[in-house]
Structures are given as structure tokens and as C-alpha cells.
């Protein structure tokens, strides 16, 4: 469950990065559709956060420790919304670039989360 979400979020984050990068190439700021995309990605990460906490509560332990796992979950949850809010203050293509960078950061965090959880299955 968690691994599937992690992979899905990684892919979604890269898609969001490509989409916003494309907007930046065309000299456009982030628009409503981009924010809907960010919302979808954020919902997925929220689901991951909840699933992760439930798994910890059930007594399962990530390979690299619960504290690091939780910190990465929270960081992943914050990445895209924070970049989206920043892009609201910069209505140029640089807002789009920033969201694209935020999505790439999220994808990297998902790779790390995959390693941190470690053990296959679950």
C-alpha cells in the first residue's frame, strides 16, 4: 500500500514538474489548472502521510527509523503546497519554475522514503 503510493506520487510529481516546466517555457505563470494538479498531488501525499502514520501506529518499523520516516513524510507533504503558495506571489514564469522545482524535490523525497521504509511488502 505504502510502496504503491510512493511510486504513484513520484510519478505524479514528475508529471507536475514537467507540466509546470512546460508552462514556464511558454512564459506563463501558474494557472488554475496547475493549482488543481498541485491539489491532486497534495491529496496523494496526504493519503501517504495518513497511511504512514497508521502503519507506524500498528507497530511496523521502517528500516531507517521512525523519526526520519515521519520527518520525510511531513516534508513531502509540505513541498508542493509551499511552492504553490510562493508561485502566487510571483505571477511570472518564475512562479511556474518554482513549482516545477518543488515537484522535483517531492520526487526526490519519495525516492528517499522508499529507501527509508525499506522492507518490501506491507
Amino acid at each position: 500500500m505504502l510502496d504503491a503510493l510512493t511510486v504513484a506520487i513520484g510519478a505524479a510529481a514528475l508529471a507536475l514538474a514537467a507540466w509546470c516546466g512546460f508552462a514556464a517555457l511558454r512564459n506563463q505563470p501558474t494557472k488554475d489548472w496547475h493549482f488543481i494538479g498541485m491539489g491532486v498531488v497534495t491529496l496523494l501525499v496526504l493519503a501517504q502521510l495518513v497511511v504512514g502514520i497508521v502503519m507506524l501506529a500498528r507497530g511496523q518499523r521502517p528500516d531507517e527509523g521512525s523519526v526520519i520516516f515521519l520527518a520525510y513524510l511531513v516534508g513531502a507533504f509540505a513541498a508542493v503546497p509551499a511552492a504553490g503558495l510562493l508561485s502566487l506571489s510571483e505571477r511570472t514564469k518564475w512562479g511556474s519554475v518554482t513549482v516545477a522545482a518543488g515537484a522535483v524535490v517531492l520526487a526526490v523525497l519519495e525516492v528517499r522514503l522508499y529507501d527509508i521504509w525499506g522492507t518490501p511488502g506491507a
Binding site: 511552492a83 510562493l86 508561485s87 506571489s89 510571483e90 518564475w94 512562479g95 518554482t98 522545482a101 518543488g102
Partner: peptide, 9 residues
Amino acid sequence: SGPGLLLVW
């Protein structure tokens, strides 16, 4: 502002 936003991010 502009590229500075990316930098601060």
C-alpha cells in the same frame, strides 16, 4: 522576485 523566487525556494 523573478529568478530570486526560485533561489529562495
